[in-house]
Design a protein around this nucleic acid. Structure first.
Lengths: 158, 158
DNA sequence: TCCGTTTTGACCAAATCTGACCTTTGTCTG
DNA sequence: CAGACAAAGGTCAGATTTGGTCAAAACGGA
């Protein structure tokens, strides 16, 4: 049985689909009013169904003229590539990291020089903060790959 | 639903864009009149959106013939951007990070969407590893900006 | 019944906007 | 020249408008 949360979820997704830029701007109070529920229900839906894991980014502002903006990211190929990112996990050693970068080059996701750049930056950061190297490496790798992937997609859309 | 403050902000930015010297001189009372608001609203906009952090300088004079001058510090491209990166240092709190991202947007180094992505990624990573948040944030921010900047430079060479 | 998910409501935090009151600077007048 | 007056802009506290958090109650399926 479809719950209220499900209905709100599909409404939001529908609105996103309708824009070329895959964005929707919501007014929390109005939306709650439309679905005859309490405003915090909207937060619940956003928190459980529009996570970054699932490819969404939420941005919001309080006060007069406040809003909640939902942006869909990670469409298409990188959704699939996201699988690689998951494998990074909470920690990764240098060998595994190198291996991953090579794999991404093989899959045409990265160019050699981009992989090289990423490797260099990690080295630099680890140099400055040697504590918990494998964990920091995992964070940095994931972060940089996400940025890079986004760039690749933006390019493809042109 | 953009707020009044947003409209005033964009009006001022537009005026600045129109001059080669990146300066605009305002008359507080007139401007308030034009936007049908109280004069102190102008101060509010200036105080919240045209801060030094974001690359603006405000000068003003009271009394007869008084004025408010808004000057945008010139963007010096990559060289200047390197300075921004240095400012990150070994640790940075969330507010400073946000300011930096907004500054980079204002200076045309990042697009809003990219800044948003970077913010989202940091949030996620900090969620997973809350230890030494300000340090991890600094590392992630620097790493992602470097990747992004490289991309921007590559684009400029084309 | 038990457990995870939904839903609600009370309370909180942030951004915006206004208005009353203050300070600085320039000008006019006795 | 002193003092009054006018013409800017500045400050700050409080009301208003949004959205955020969290814990407890309600619900629904195994």
């Amino acid at each position: 049985m479809a719950s209220l949360a499900d209905h709100i979820e599909s409404y939001i997704k529908q609105q996103i689909q309708r824009t070329p830029s895959q964005v929707v701007v919501l007014n929390r109070a109005q939306l709650a009013e439309a679905f005859s529920c309490v405003p915090s229900q909207i937060n619940y839906v956003l928190a459980t169904r529009f996570t970054r894991e699932r490819g969404y980014v939420i941005e919001s502002r309080r006060g007069g003229g406040g809003y909640i903006r939902v942006v869909k990211t990670l469409p298409g190929r990188s959704q699939e590539v996201a699988g690689f990112l998951k494998r990074i996990g909470s920690a990764i050693d240098e060998q595994q990291a190198d291996h991953l970068l090579v794999t991404l080059i093989d899959h045409g996701v990265l160019q050699r020089r981009q992989a090289q750049l990423i490797k260099g930056i990690i080295q630099q950061e680890l140099n400055d903060f040697p504590q918990a190297a494998d964990r920091l490496r995992a964070s940095l790798l994931r972060a940089m790959l996400l940025v890079q992937l986004h760039e690749v997609e933006a390019k493809e859309r042109r």
